[in-house]
Design a protein around this nucleic acid. Structure first.
Length: 179
DNA sequence: ATGACGATTTACT
DNA sequence: GTAAATCGTCATA
């Protein structure tokens, strides 16, 4: 990070967007625009997009070149640099808000990006070889469960597909697994 | 050029 | 539970 402080979290929740057939994907039906160009890049690249007029979200591109498959990073467990994360997060939270808990730092796709200071400048960077933003191999074998994806407007097959993956029982997930 | 909308978050009733 | 916040992007014309 700019001031030398390292920020780290353990990814505990993701969602897959599986190509041009996926009606919920930004690349549905082969849509390819300036915004989602990174989805067509080589695997390991970050696809960072802006949404709702105020939020950034990050994906990891997983498909081959020209094959727009990506995984949205939806939540993480804060590991390192919590102080700076709190600062990053409280910047946008309105003054009277409730105190920021640790679990509020990275428990959502836009929250996580805000805590880690991820924005458009990270779009298209390589998360495998990068040094300013990167992903490390996981340690341990968490129990992972599947669920329907969150926040989609599409109905039917692609709205119902269980393409969300989350660590069972982890308090940092954005929305608890439904019973 | 214009209008509708969004892979969300937050506050409020 | 509902609704506001807020603006870049994209489809249509």
């Amino acid at each position: 990070m700019p001031d030398g402080q390292r920020l780290a979290c353990r990814i505990v929740e993701t969602e897959a967007y599986v190509g041009i057939k996926d009606a919920a994907s930004h690349a549905f039906a082969g849509r390819r625009t300036a915004r989602n160009e990174s989805m067509y890049a080589r695997p390991g690249v970050a696809y960072v997009y802006f949404t709702y007029g105020m939020h950034w979200c990050m994906n990891v591109v997983c498909g081959k070149i020209d094959e727009p498959v990506a995984v949205l990073i939806r939540a993480g467990e804060p590991i390192e640099g919590l102080e700076l994360m709190r600062h990053n997060r409280s910047a946008s939270r309105r003054a009277r808000g409730t105190p920021l808990q640790d679990r509020d730092l990275c428990s959502g796709p836009a929250r996580l990006c805000q805590a880690l200071a991820i924005d458009k400048s990270m779009d298209g960077t390589d998360l495998v070889t990068g040094d300013s933003l990167f992903i490390e191999r996981a340690t341990g074998k968490p129990k992972v469960v599947r669920a329907k994806r969150i926040g989609l407007s599409v109905k039917g097959r692609w709205g119902e597909a269980p393409l969300r993956y989350l660590v069972k029982g982890d308090p940092n997930v954005s929305v608890p697994a439904r019973a």
